[in-house]
Design a binder for these strands. Structure first.
Lengths: 226, 226
DNA sequence: GATGCGACTTGACCCCGATCAAATAACTTT
DNA sequence: AAAGTTATTTGATCGGGGTCAAGTCGCATC
């Protein structure tokens, strides 16, 4: 891990992100003040479940995987965070204890902000508080979605859903590139890699073609029916 | 459904709840102003997923079940809310759309507050905003816990966990009464009722006795090992 | 374009938990 | 307390997905 200071492109990524974009510019700048940037290799651990953390993290580039560990060492992904996402914010209000492990799912650059400072700001400034509230609502809803998918959908259905979530409305045929390794996608969907693979081959009969990381859809309706 | 006004015991339940207790009394009172109370029969639906809701709800007595519906009509519980819990708050910040169905899991009394008013208050008053933030963090963590349990634990392990969460530290032998029907517990744990029943009989060999709603533990350690 | 390694797929097998059906227990009502 | 519900348990069966073991593919490197 190497630590650096914010570059000007970093600032752009930050200020354009959902969280900061809704804040008045000076407020956002105030938070950026004192931010530290660090780079990490794939598989590096940023922090562990139940560990004390005193920073809030922001993904400048790369991918973070949040996961919990079972007693037997098995891992359950809680969330996959791409560029522009914040994590570790909930720890601020939960005794500063991380609720999950955070790992770089690929080469990664993060910015970190002192959480006591951010928390202080949230306590004084309603804009910051609002931004946090919206962040937490969005994350909460995503976790709920995940839980419901796990309980209601089979593997092929989850994959179909995932694909559809990347397919703009209206288009019936469509193709895109997976934003990460199938490995990671499997974890995100709560599946073993083998199960993801099998799900893709099941979906072949509904017009889904997989070539490396590129997914092609021939028939949106068929997927929706699945 | 019948609608009433707040009784004085209602006020006590509200003001003693985690959400309101952390607010300055006058602020709390301001929110209670204009609250409406309604009673519901078991199985009544309070609102449906994606429906517009303009209130935040508070459980005065009874039990609420939040669940999502699958395309095939199957249901997945997102949360079970006992007396003192708030729900529907996240909708305030998500276009006023409910993220799940809400149903009375037993005879129920709820208070409701106009969400635009509460939201307004949160935007002006940092105490209210803080209270909301903490609420959302707690709920978020609970959903995460649920997701991780689903992915990491077998049915008997989830049940063992649930029992342990009701067993004060230190005690090795212990007994308590389930706060709701096994039916509801099954849903909360993401199990079919039959699976819950079988889980209980599996745990019998680890010193768990079930008589109606009463659960008795002979050996805490055995449960923890499970 | 050959080589090599890691990512992905496929096959075989098995276990957990869903589902359906039926029996039993626990409550309500009367 | 008897009758009728409604909850819960138990049995039997089945399917989805996890795991382990081979392959095979894709991609980077030279």
């Amino acid at each position: 891990m190497k630590t650096l200071r914010l570059t000007s492109t970093d600032r752009t990524v930050l200020l354009d992100s959902r969280f900061f974009a809704r804040l008045p510019r000076p407020t956002a700048e105030a938070i950026l003040e004192g931010a530290i940037v660090s780079t990490h290799e794939e598989h590096d651990i940023l922090f562990r479940q139940d560990e004390r953390i005193d920073d809030v993290f922001f993904v400048l580039s790369g991918l973070v995987r949040l996961y919990r560990l079972g007693k037997d060492g098995r891992e359950a992904d809680i969330a996959i965070l791409p560029k522009g996402e914040i994590f570790g914010a909930n720890a601020m209000f939960l005794e500063h204890r991380a609720t999950a492990n955070a790992q770089a799912a690929e080469a990664l650059i993060v910015a970190r902000f002192e959480s006591h400072k951010l928390r202080q700001l949230a306590a004084e400034n309603t804009d910051v508080a609002q931004a946090l509230i919206e962040l937490l609502c969005r994350h909460g809803k995503m976790t709920e979605d995940c839980l419901a998918e796990d309980r209601l959908l089979t593997a092929p259905q989850r994959v179909a859903n995932y694909i559809l979530s990347h397919c703009p409305d209206g288009l019936s045929t469509f193709s895109f590139r997976l934003p990460f390794q199938k490995n990671v996608l499997a974890g995100k969907l709560g599946l073993a890699p083998e199960a993801l693979s099998r799900a893709f081959s099941t979906l072949r009969q509904s017009g889904v073609t997989v070539k490396g990381r590129v997914i092609e859809i021939r028939d949106r309706q068929a997927l929706e029916r699945f």
